[in-house]
Design a protein around this nucleic acid. Structure first.
Lengths: 187, 187
DNA sequence: AGAATCGGACTGAATGTTCATTCTGCTCTT
DNA sequence: AAGAGCAGAATGAACATTCAGTCCGATTCT
């Protein structure tokens, strides 16, 4: 029974559901099954709690994205595996998605910490894009541009599907989405 | 000297800079050059203020997107004009962008109000996409998918350029971005 | 062994702060 | 001098954080 982990999980659930500003420490405590003071044995402040949570989540997502990812496979296949994993994870874990979005643009986390936490997520993509550009399979634009556009497109799709599923009359096919992204960046 | 407008503008500036939860009414009042009580002559609650602000901003963005947009021009040209306008506006008005993102996923605005406010922004895009699909120029996927992916990609690019301009070593060319999006959705 | 003591982990009421909102009275305008 | 419009202090609720004490397993003492 790892209290620290329990607190992180409780915080994740609450923020995903109610948003950061509507998740008081007292509620986090109740959700985690501990007293309010206990949280402060593990985290200096609410801000630190949130920062650690963000890092924790970024790590989990990275892990998910790399499931079955073979650094030495073809460019296109790697692209589909990585972003397919990303999309599925985000679609199936709306909690994580909401969390990353809440915290991704919240003044509660400074830009440096955010960058650091997301580093691991970016790294494989950068490598992939560089390889692709060398093989002239991918447009010759900065990695950050290609990565950001793909990330943004998929993330936004997941958000929309979660928040207003009613706007999508038919089932959305994951492969169609990744293909869209691939067509966008391919040379 | 329209007080109501001044209050809306002050709110916009503060939320864009500090975020919603860090923009107390007292600060809004100071920024707008009025007393705290005065705000309540124009808006019932903070929530209503924020809701109106969102609607106001969505309208302004729509207007910007339609600059020089000709409903009867070719599909590709319409696409470039509309999303080019969108991108430039969002890039050059980080305040508006931040606002739309803050309020776009804030529990402070209910999903219905959000939908209603964004209606006007979606409408021309839907028409464009339908026409494009009829002419077989555009992938046969639901409008919402195509629109959401484009919107998400560009919006995220603007955010990233604003928050961490340092990640972009070279100047980002707007046309490259729209081309990316066009390649994504074209048949 | 059993009693006595210690000390770290934990609790939740208390504290002080920050806000949204209200209210009292002031200031123009007519 | 009446009334609309406004300012800003006052109010009360919500919250992050603190703290005085409780609990319990381990350690030392008899």
């Amino acid at each position: 029974m790892d209290k620290r982990q329990q607190i992180l999980e409780a915080t994740a659930e609450l923020i995903a559901e109610h948003g950061l500003q509507a998740s008081p420490m007292s509620m986090v405590a109740k959700h985690a099954g501990c007293g309010a003071g206990t949280i402060y044995r593990y985290f200096e402040t609410k801000e630190e709690l949130v920062r650690e949570l963000f890092a924790d989540v970024a790590l989990k997502v990275t892990e998910a994205c790399l499931q079955g990812y073979d650094r030495h496979a073809g460019i296109k296949q790697r692209f589909f595996v990585y972003w397919g994993n990303f999309y599925h994870w985000m679609r199936d874990h709306p909690q994580t998605r909401a969390l990353m979005e809440q915290l991704g643009s919240s003044p509660a986390i400074c830009e440096n910490h955010r960058q650091a936490s997301m580093q691991c997520l970016q790294e494989p993509v950068t490598e992939l894009l560089e390889d692709g550009k060398n093989q002239q399979l991918i447009k010759n634009l900065p990695d950050e541009v290609l990565a950001t556009m793909t990330f943004g497109a998929l993330m936004t799709m997941c958000r929309k599907q979660h928040l207003t599923p009613s706007t999508f009359t038919t089932e959305v096919n994951a492969d169609d989405l990744i293909t869209l992204c691939w067509d966008a960046i391919k040379a």
